Computed example of a mutant assay.
Amino acid sequence: MHNKKTSNNKNTSAFGTDHMTKKEDFKIKASSALIGLATIFLVLSSNISQADEAYFNANVVPQLAQHTCATCHVGQYIRPRVFEYRELLPYLAMGTARDNNVLIAKMTNARHLLPDVASHPGGQKCSSKDVEPCATFMKWWDEEFKK
């Protein structure tokens, strides 16, 4: 099926006019992502152990601090609050593997819902998946999900 762009910023498909603008479509995708995030958070919250949180505090937090993440992600300024285990864990969980999840994608500026928008407005924190802090995030993924 081929989509054509019309002059009023609405998409037309082979089945007729789609009445959603790009902005409306983005809002729906963003809402779906938030619902997914909330679901993952609820599932993960019931399975959190003290050992998992201790690993996070001992290994992940120092990397976040070293890479100036707290400049934006503290208090109520910009979510997630990265020094809060329960807030950052869902970003690690959304994805299919240690090197394919939302946290790695944001830190490498790999993808976004809109192609012309940076995945992480704070800048690219990992030049590749294998450098810090992404290397530590992948080890964290192994600790959380390879049990």
Rank of each mutant, 00 (worst) to 15 (best):
K4V: 04
K5Y: 05
T6L: 12
T6M: 12
S7K: 07
N8F: 03
N8D: 15
N8C: 04
N11C: 02
T12P: 01
T12Q: 14
A14C: 02
A14H: 11
A14R: 02
F15W: 04
G16P: 04
D18A: 05
H19T: 11
H19N: 14
H19V: 11
H19K: 09
M20D: 15
M20L: 14
K22Q: 13
E24R: 00
E24Q: 13
F26T: 03
K29C: 07
K29M: 08
A30W: 13
S31N: 14
S31L: 10
S32E: 15
A33W: 11
A33I: 03
G36A: 06
I40C: 08
I40K: 12
F41Q: 14
V43E: 13
N47E: 13
S49A: 09
S49Q: 11
A51H: 11
D52G: 06
D52R: 04
D52I: 00
F56V: 03
N57M: 04
N57H: 09
A58K: 15
A58S: 14
N59K: 10
N59V: 00
V61K: 10
V61A: 04
V61R: 09
P62D: 09
P62Y: 07
P62F: 11
L64V: 13
A65E: 15
Q66N: 12
Q66L: 08
H67E: 03
H67T: 05
H67Y: 10
T68V: 05
T68D: 14
T71M: 07
H73Y: 05
H73F: 03
G75E: 09
Q76H: 02
Y77P: 00
R79T: 15
R81E: 13
V82G: 04
F83C: 01
F83S: 14
E84P: 01
E87W: 01
L88M: 09
L89Q: 12
L89A: 09
L89D: 12
P90F: 06
Y91G: 01
L92Q: 13
M94C: 08
M94F: 12
G95Q: 00
G95W: 01
G95A: 00
T96F: 04
R98I: 01
R98A: 14
D99H: 10
N100G: 00
N101S: 12
N101G: 10
L103Y: 02
A105Y: 08
K106C: 02
M107D: 05
M107A: 14
M107W: 07
T108G: 07
T108E: 13
N109I: 01
H112L: 00
L114F: 06
L114K: 13
D116T: 08
D116Q: 08
D116Y: 07
D116P: 00
V117T: 15
A118M: 11
S119Q: 10
G122S: 10
G122I: 02
Q124K: 13
Q124S: 04
C126F: 01
S128W: 04
S128N: 12
K129F: 05
K129M: 08
D130N: 12
V131T: 14
V131Q: 13
V131Y: 11
E132W: 04
E132I: 00
P133R: 01
P133H: 02
A135Y: 12
A135G: 04
W140T: 06
W140E: 09
W140N: 05
W140Q: 03
W141G: 02
D142A: 08
D142H: 11
E143T: 09
E144D: 00
E144W: 01
F145Q: 08
F145I: 05
K146I: 06
K146P: 01
K147E: 10
